[in-house]
Amino acid sequence: MQILKSKAIVKTLVFLRKHKNANNFLIMLPSALWVICFLFIPLILIFVYSFSTRGEGGTIVASYGLHNYEHFITTSIYARTIIKSIIIGFEVTLVCLIVGYLPAYYLARLTTTRRVILIILLIVPFWTSVIIRTYSWMLVLGNRGAINYYLMKWGLIQEPLRLLFNEASVILGLVHIMLPFMILPIFTCIDRLDASLVDASKSLGAGKIRTFIEITLPLSLPGVSAGCLLVFIISVGAFLTPAMLGGPKDTMIAMLIQQNFLMLFDWPFGSAAAIIYLILVLIIVYFFNRVIGLDKIWSGR
């Protein structure tokens, strides 16, 4: 048996040496298999389910039609949910951009040691789970949370402020989680900028602010664009944060899909919602790229 095995290995090795393409294929095989099994096939299943019908007790009946999509589009609460998700996505992206650009710029101008320390500090929160990070906001913003406690202790307010379970707290929580995804691409982009471009601008008579506006800012746009795209896509599909920090009015699309799958056992409708969400995000990303796409940034007009 052992001999047979080693013979097989030798044969494979000889085969691989003869067929370089086969070699490349084998290198890609594990990740390709992973993507096919855990992304591609499930997506196809979801797509197929979305046309089927919910049967007794949450079964899936093979009676196909567009009724799930019809139901989604004609029921205003679903349309509102998805629009709300997209609006929250935009808001989170915008806040992340405003809050994140300067730290990214500052980081890129630091010397190596200080920069490494700050980048580690930026990445460390990734080691704790999103649940814990989100829950910590409840301790800060809750009725008996830190802010209300001190405001009441100092006699500034009589009743606790309702800081939790609204859109603002959802955005706050999401910005907290998403900020590194904005800062890191912008930082990388500015860091890769040739320092002599800034020197050249100054030698030609531009001050610090003019140089930033004319040179650094436009050349950092690819990083801004990458950061915005990342933050937007992830936050539109956010599930935990809106579920924990949002109120009933702040239901987002991922929560809706989860409810249909796990609480209502309506897999066909949940699938349709997922497909609609996917298509909408793809459309937005497409237009986003056309507006702030790379081509535009490099053309310089």
């Binding site: 002599s196 020197d199 050249a200 030698s203 030609l204 436009p218 050349l219 940034i297 310089g300």
Partner: peptide
């Protein structure tokens, strides 16, 4: 005086042309 107050013209080793500006706009910059 900072560099932008001195009236100097500088050519850099890697040219340091602004990649997002046309040749015309590079020269017109100063």
């Amino acid at each position: 005086e900072p560099p932008y107050m001195r009236n100097i013209g500088m050519v850099f080793q890697n040219y340091a042309l602004f990649p997002h500006k046309t040749v015309y706009n590079n020269i017109a910059y100063g």
